[in-house]
Design a protein around this nucleic acid. Sequence first.
DNA 1: CTGAAAGCGCTTACAG
DNA 2: CTGAAAGCGCTTACAG
Lengths: 335, 335
Amino acid sequence: MRVTIADVARVAGVSKTTASRVLNTRSEVDRSTAARVREVIDRMGYVPSSGALGPARESSRTIGMLVPSLTWPWMGEVVQGVVDTLEAAEFGLLLFTCNRGTESVERFTSQVSARAFDGLLVVEPENTLDMLTALHRKGLPVVLIDDRGHHPDFPYVTAANHEGGAAAARHLLSTGRRRPLVLTGPTRFGCVRDRLAGFRTTYAEHGHALDSGLVVESDFTEADGREAVRRMVREGRDFDAVFAHNDLGAVGAMAALRASGLGVPEDVAVIGFDDIPMAPLTEPSLTTVRQPMRRMGETAAGMLLARLAGGTATAAPVVLPTELVVRQSAPAAAG
Amino acid sequence: MRVTIADVARVAGVSKTTASRVLNTRSEVDRSTAARVREVIDRMGYVPSSGALGPARESSRTIGMLVPSLTWPWMGEVVQGVVDTLEAAEFGLLLFTCNRGTESVERFTSQVSARAFDGLLVVEPENTLDMLTALHRKGLPVVLIDDRGHHPDFPYVTAANHEGGAAAARHLLSTGRRRPLVLTGPTRFGCVRDRLAGFRTTYAEHGHALDSGLVVESDFTEADGREAVRRMVREGRDFDAVFAHNDLGAVGAMAALRASGLGVPEDVAVIGFDDIPMAPLTEPSLTTVRQPMRRMGETAAGMLLARLAGGTATAAPVVLPTELVVRQSAPAAAG
DNA sequence: CTGAAAGCGCTTACAG
DNA sequence: CTGAAAGCGCTTACAG
């Protein structure tokens, strides 16, 4: 039989009220009484039953997190950042992926209403915006990570995508690359549009308008990046660099270039975006724009926690800086 | 104000008892009554309060998962497999990493006792065995994934490590490699000892005892694998293949070989273990022994669920088959 | 098929 | 500083 607060009270010779008070470290308990109760608690190995906290409790001390997939190369870092921050604050993490269509979404929604968690962190899966908006309206605190679609209604943390694109452009320009091929991600994503805008603007400012035939949309997979570059080479397109909107796409691009007999970086320099764990391990190692994934997770968790602690409902968005990491696939200008 | 079962009952003109019964789809309710209650539930948007289920409920319909890190290259697959299985069974997943020493472990333990979850899946972090054993004794159902230390007390699911090692050996032998360098993982892990034993036995069976000077322990990181191979080359060791106990180590080995001017696979064939997402993307692509990580997660979750549903307490271990994936770094014998 | 009542483990006014 | 009592939202014998 599980030991309850009634058992503790009985053994310690106090009322449940008093036992409850020392449990919640209320000040109005006599020192020696408190000590005695605490001793009994330790001895009996008593632990409050979270389930039974029931009505009395306001908070589940748990937050939910909804992500499209756990197998994306950078997702582990984000979730690790979230878990670390939450554990330090003594919050648990309930993890969801909505990968089975409408049914998953409904199930997820009911968990929310059931108050299984106090707030929600989300890397937005496709087609969940309506649901998220509804939940948010109902009063569930929500923080978005990597604002994929530009939703001004939600507090969010994201990376400096525009500046990241600009940094990639400056780097390529500084090494004399005038005709970059841009391998974008799906353009419905806000981050993709920002990366492209930063890149395009910077090239334009230097007097080199982007060749629209050299801007191709891809889907963030390695296979599609490879195929797109292979096609461009076969069509005889003239380009001296590739700016891929994610590292996986850049890896695919490098494979296609290698297969076509083109040297990286001699013939074509390649820059990715993300700095996933494999980026430094490719051959040649990949120059890329680093997103601070773990910090994004930590920051988002921190914002949500602050909100739950009574912070303002509409926190300002946080834009974390990106950083150009120069490696072999697009080295710095010689000398 | 949140709508409670009392509200529903009042509006529907029935007792709380009856409302509760239709909620739990008990058979003893009149069809038309049930329909009316259900209509009210829908209209009012009623959802049971999980917290308030309190005493009455036996299960939290949540399981916990404890992992050492979320950023290991194969962890995403395992957790995804777990989440998929759990969501299909309408269970939630509470995720923990014990990465802050004793304090984390204690916090974790108290969550268990508080019945935040009904069972536990674990990829064993270092120094948690005592805690896990204690929890298990207290009646918490536990299933281990990737039995790292050989703990016969727990049900577990693992990959066929011994056979995987043997398969790697057979493949190298079939391509004429007689002097393999073995880059093991930490030998305190059961999986490492099994992989080595399978490899060693197979070589011995073919009349080629492993050179003990060519078996070196590494720590599963890319950097350490690289350094170990670099050192072996510099010392002038003679080997024509590398069998690394994980893919990251194999990637490091390939980098060291390349840096030493040795060709892969011409001079040295390389085989890894795991088949992480980057394995097919390396240059040359990595031949490896595939562990079915996602299926391991699914299987472990399934075992735990079965146990919770009243299955036997001591399920037999499940050993999932590994599969040799032949790519460029150790190609099949010509012809 | 249905409902009044008791109880789950805990907390919180309220009264001393 | 302490305790008896009420109540949180729900379920489950028990009785009709």
